[in-house]
Each structure stands twice: as C-alpha cells, then as structure tokens.
Design a protein around this nucleic acid. Structure first.
Lengths: 121, 121
DNA sequence: GTGGGAATGAAAATCATTTTCATTTGTGAT
DNA sequence: ATCACAAATGAAAATGATTTTCATTCCCAC
C-alpha cells in the first residue's frame, strides 16, 4: 500500500478544495512539480480511504475530489455549475436504520445525494 | 439525428426502469435481439434529449438510465452476498424536496442506497 | 554499506462512451 | 417496380479517465 503524497493534498487545497485527478496533475505540472499521473491517482485513493477527501462525480462521469469536513454529511450538487452544498441528513440516518432493521441487515451504511439546478444557473 | 429504437426503451422498462447502457445491451443480446452497442447508446441519448429517461451516475462512474416520472425506489444491498432488496423511500423524497427548496435548487433528483450485511450472511 | 519493503512513474491494459464511415433500410416520387 | 436520398444501423477505431504492471529509485533499520 502507498501513503498519500503530501503535495497532492496541498495542491487540492490550493485548487479550492475541488478538482479532478487530471486537473490536479495538470496544475502540479504547470507549477513545475515533478510527479506522475499514477501517483496523483494513488494519493487521491488513499486520501479517500482515510476519509480526508470526498469523491463525487461530475455529469460527464469524471471523478472530482474535495476536502471534507469530519461530520458525516450529504451533498446537494448543481448539475450545471458543479456547485456543492453540504447538507444535514438526519432524516436519512433514521430511514436507513429503520429499513435495515426491517429487513434484518446489520453493519449498515448508506449513500445519499441530491442533484438539481442551483438558483444561480 | 437518430430516433430511439423502441426495443431499447422496452428493455429498459423490463429491467426495472434502471440500467446502464452496457446492461441493456447484454440483456438484449441474451434475449436474442439483434442490436449493436452503438444503437443502444444512441437510443438512450435520444431518450434523454426527449426527457423520456433520466440519467444518473453510479459510484463507479457508469451512467445509469431510468424512466422519468417512474415512481422510483431504492435498494438495500448486502455487501457480502450481493443480495438486493427494493425498499420504499418516501422519507427520502421528502428530505430531498425540503433540502432543495431550502437552498433554492430546482429540477432535483437524488440517489440513495443502503448497504450492510443481510441476515443470512 | 547492505537488504528489503515502500514509493514512484512510464507504459500498457481496461472500460465506458463517442466518432467514423460504409452499408442497409425505409420512404416518397416517378 | 425503380430510382434517389435521407435516416438508421453497427463494426471498428478513437477517445479519455482510470487502473494495473513492472522495473527502478528511495529510505530506513541493521
């Protein structure tokens, strides 16, 4: 296993905490950093594993990474501009728990996202 | 421009109104329908243009299509055996609507899935 | 210094999706 | 029926993100 290259995280931060792997790679190149695309992907994966960054999907399917706060949250994403709002999901937590119990599931987790067009678009 | 091949739509319906292009293609092949992957993609694009189907992204980035306005459901998936249960998500629909309104989003959709270990595993 | 495991990156492989292009099909006019 | 032309089709190549492979380099404990 490989650990994350710290320059990747710092570039993601500088990018406004929101960028795709390819964008981070290009950014680092432009800034004269010597790094391989492979390492960028590996670092991002490891950051996702460590729950330091979050991964979402753009409409075209490209994965975008963003720094995430520590609390478990969900996202409201604009399909047009990609703007993202972190929202609270208490209702979901409850729903997931009830549904899991009802069907005898244990060790449950869940994903939930809302997407639409934001007021600016 | 090409119009949608009706067999694609009917296969999507039969698939539970929720499938990727590749899945639809494989399904049609298995059922002995003669069709090319290109046509499946083209038909789906055209259905999306006509707003007859909706497109979302799976976590792995693959595009999934579903009939618009179809009362959609959610899934409870076992991480161990892959068994899947369809569950009702009224709570989610409400949550999504409230959150969207609160943040001024329109044309909203959502995804939600619960995963865990089922009683048999 | 030396050995071994971790990190790196170039190049090849993978996979969904799109594009190209030659062929087939359908349709309407004659 | 025949001709002409637009639309539909699909095989194969192109594209683009991501992953895998593998040989090399780096680093640290001994």
């Amino acid at each position: 296993m490989s650990r994350s290259n710290p320059r990747v995280l710092s570039t993601l931060e500088r990018a406004g905490g929101f960028a795709s792997a390819q964008e981070i790679y290009r950014l680092m190149q432009r800034e004269g950093e010597s790094i391989g695309l492979t390492t960028v992907y590996r670092s991002l994966q490891s950051l996702v594993n460590d729950k330091i960054v979050d991964v979402l999907r753009r409409d075209d399917g490209e994965a975008i990474y963003r720094l995430c706060g520590d609390a478990h949250h969900h996202h409201l994403v604009c399909k047009a501009c990609g703007d993202t709002v972190e929202i609270e999901g208490g209702a979901i937590e409850k729903w997931a728990k009830v549904m899991a119990e009802e069907h005898g599931f244990r060790d449950v987790g869940h994903t939930a996202e809302i997407f639409g067009i934001c007021s600016k678009c």
